[in-house]
Design a binder for these strands. Structure first.
Lengths: 358, 358
DNA sequence: CAAATTTGCCAAAGCGCTTTGGATGATTAG
DNA sequence: CTAATCATCCAAAGCGCTTTGGCAAATTTG
């Protein structure tokens, strides 16, 4: 009845954009055959397939992703959902490396990557919408908190997902990949205890975040096991900026009984702590020891050959790749059991630690 | 003839997902009317519109984005294309802030954001494919080089785009937003010259990148205008990491005639330079001055109340927002003339600069 | 050499939406 | 009271692809 409003001249830019119909007419074949040829189905002779591929390349044909996705029900797209609230998870330098790692995995398997900023306040609605709008086949959940309602919601929605991190309070099984934060910080604390330190400060990330909560757990575990009482005056928890590290350390170093060592949650914090130590006229590694967690970020490397800081290191970029692979696997095989993966951090020894001053 | 393979039970997860047909049957209305009601067309009575909205909310209906986009020819999605080559632009901490800023603008106007990693080697093919696949309405070009073939290509393809930065060698008009890098570094250099510094080092980003090239231009301009010959031994150019800053400064400070001031291209470099200065037993701001460019990143703030470093500051997050807005504007109004915007950086005075030692 | 397979291709339906060009009944004008 | 005008709503086509079920022609089989 009605001609469709989008005429060719409107749809195509100044540059030609082929569609399947045109390509098949050009080849004097049906759309079916061309489609099958391009998608590697067996019901087409090698000669024809060759011809089709040739023509597709010459005429610069790529199938329209939206049409394809509508027809197949799969979008070949992964969503990364970034919670935005007071703090912006995304601007965290860690995010860049994570996403870079994931991106590599997507490219390999022909997936696209979509970012969505979601406000904490209408989280539930947002995730429902993502499902309904249907432009992703699955999502990666960033920044899990200790108790995170998103996991139950997504399970209920039946939208495949993998969590980067875990939510301590969720007991139902789900897909996650996490660093063994507890163990890393227990080891780091042990290392400092072995060096004779007893007043060890913890400068941590926000402890609503699951990873920060676990790190603190490891730290306290280790202290208690040696009969050292965790001192609340030596613990801070906030967003992991340089300033936060600087301020915390400055203030603690000014205490009557200052810490002799700092265990901190990120390179940025560590850099701030180092500044505070210098400013106090002390030397790092001699007067005060520092251990940091190191996400092995490309732009904030912990030294080149010799590490600057003693650190618990775990590559967040590798994590990104693995999480992406897990999700794509899950999408391919929706009935498979939930996968989990725990990455161990390695303790690398730099020049920022030494025996406790006597 | 053939029933479609995707049955309801397969398409829907365990959770109900409404489509337009079902919604309209539920309301005893045609799909046309429901569609018009939801999209605010006038040919529908207020009472009906009300009913439709009500039902949509109750039944948790959101239109399928892929179908909608196929029907309208618009995808409501912006692509961010990240060149990956030796270095990974994306992992640059700047990227996180930029994308966060852009993301906010997208949310406002109901756009989605898609990231694509594109290898430099098959750039042309990749951009063609992006156009053909048609899942973005426009793209944002990151990391422009001095001569950047992407601009001509995209213009030819007729795919709306905005460049974050500029390409010096491209003379045809196109949409861009840039910081006035030349001016910023000229001012910074002038500032140091005014303080009596004559041996001023430049620790720059990769100079194939347009922004770095311009910064160097500003620096050299200022020097020459005062009759100071730019000394190649005082100039370095590489990826802007902490290590690079540290190494460059260490080496230069060990020269026979070391620089008395450093002009550097990023906070990370500056932090490395500071480390080198401390390690050399010098004091920043007294023995050696440092000015950095400061992108005002959320996680690498240049001090709180009092800036640490004297800096040329320009918020990359604001840039992200503006670029996104420009692109959406351009998409809405494809025939409008190319827009350009030049952001001025402000010079903020911290404690890292002082008169040249005599 | 006829019958049973196999091979290679095709027409048409369907994915879920928008939009065109009516149609229908209510309202107003002549 | 009839004709013209509106205000609402609808059927159906089309966006560009995949996939089902068929159907000739070529090949193999008995």
């Amino acid at each position: 009845m009605a001609p469709h409003p989008l005429t060719n001249s409107k749809r195509f830019g100044p540059y030609l954009r082929m569609n399947l119909k045109e390509l098949s007419e050009h080849l004097a074949l049906s759309q079916t055959t061309v489609s099958r040829a391009l998608n590697g189905y067996p019901e087409v002779s090698e000669k024809t397939r060759e011809r089709v591929h040739q023509a597709a390349k010459e005429l610069n044909y790529s199938p329209n992703a939206r049409a394809k996705s509508l027809a197949t029900g799969r979008s070949q797209t992964i969503g990364h959902v970034i919670p935005v609230s007071t703090q912006h998870e995304m601007v965290n330098p860690v995010f860049g490396d994570f996403v870079a790692g994931a991106g590599e995995a997507y490219v390999q398997q022909g997936f696209d990557m979509m970012l969505s900023l979601v406000d904490d306040s209408d989280e539930e609605d947002a995730y429902r919408k993502i499902k309904a709008r249907g432009n992703v086949d699955g999502i990666i959940v960033h920044g899990p908190r200790m108790q995170d309602s998103r996991i139950a919601l997504l399970t209920e929605l039946g939208l495949p997902f993998v969590v980067h991190g875990r939510a301590s309070d969720v007991t139902t099984p789900y897909n996650w990949l996490d660093t063994n934060n507890t163990r890393a910080f227990r080891r780091a604390t042990d290392f400092l205890l072995d060096l004779g330190h007893r007043r060890i400060a913890l400068i941590n990330g926000l402890e609503v975040m699951d990873f920060a909560h676990r790190r603190r757990g490891g730290y306290e575990d280790a202290l208690k096991k040696r009969g050292v009482d965790p001192d609340p005056a030596l613990m801070r928890s906030e967003e992991m900026t340089e300033i936060f590290g600087y301020r915390s350390a400055s203030e603690m170093l000014a205490m009557e009984s200052p810490p002799t060592a700092f265990l901190v949650a990120s390179m940025m914090i560590a850099i701030g702590v180092r500044r505070a130590i210098h400013e106090a006229g002390l030397e790092m590694g001699r007067d005060v020891s520092v251990i940091t967690h190191d996400d092995d970020l490309s732009y904030i490397k912990n030294g080149h050959d010799v590490p600057i800081f003693t650190a618990t290191r775990s590559s967040v970029r590798t994590a990104g790749t693995r999480v992406a692979e897990m999700l794509m696997q899950q999408i391919k095989n929706p009935d498979s059991d939930p996968q989990t993966e725990l990455m161990e951090a390695e303790l690398i020894i730099g020049t920022s630690t030494g025996p406790a001053p006597t």
